[in-house]
Simulated assay, not measured.
Amino acid sequence: MAKTVTAQVKLQCPGGTATPAPPVGPALGAHGVNIGQFVKQFNDKTAGPDTKGLMLPVIITVYSDRSFEFKIKSPPAAVLIKLAAKIPAGKKQGKEVIPATAKKQGKYTNHTLTQAQVAEIAKKKLNDLNARDVDHAARIIAGTARSMGITVTA
Rank of each mutant, 00 (worst) to 15 (best):
M1S: 10
A2W: 05
A2K: 12
K3F: 09
T4W: 06
T4D: 02
V5K: 15
V5G: 04
V5C: 09
T6K: 15
T6P: 01
A7N: 14
A7T: 10
Q8K: 12
C13G: 00
C13N: 08
C13R: 00
C13D: 02
C13Y: 07
P14M: 06
P14W: 04
G15P: 01
G16I: 11
T17W: 05
A18W: 03
T19I: 15
T19S: 14
A21V: 14
P22S: 14
G25K: 13
A27C: 06
A27W: 00
H31I: 00
N34C: 06
N34L: 05
Q37G: 04
F38N: 06
V39H: 09
V39T: 03
K40Q: 14
Q41E: 13
F42H: 02
N43Y: 12
K45W: 10
G48D: 10
G48T: 12
G48I: 09
T51H: 07
L54A: 02
M55W: 08
M55G: 11
P57M: 08
V58A: 09
T61K: 07
Y63F: 15
R66V: 01
F68V: 08
F70T: 06
I72C: 05
S74D: 10
P75W: 08
P76W: 07
A78V: 11
L80N: 00
L80Y: 04
K82I: 02
A85R: 07
A85S: 07
A85H: 06
K86H: 13
K86M: 10
A89S: 12
K91M: 10
K92R: 11
Q93M: 13
G94V: 11
I98M: 10
T101A: 07
A102Y: 15
A102L: 13
A102T: 15
K103A: 13
K103F: 07
K103C: 00
Y108S: 02
Y108M: 08
H111R: 15
T112N: 10
T112C: 13
T114G: 08
T114A: 10
T114N: 10
Q115F: 01
A116P: 03
Q117S: 07
A119G: 03
E120V: 08
N127L: 11
N127T: 06
A131N: 02
D133L: 03
V134L: 11
V134F: 02
V134I: 15
V134R: 01
V134Q: 04
H136T: 12
H136V: 11
A137Y: 06
I140C: 01
A142K: 12
T144N: 11
S147G: 11
I150Y: 02
I150T: 11
I150M: 04
I150E: 07
V152W: 01
A154E: 07
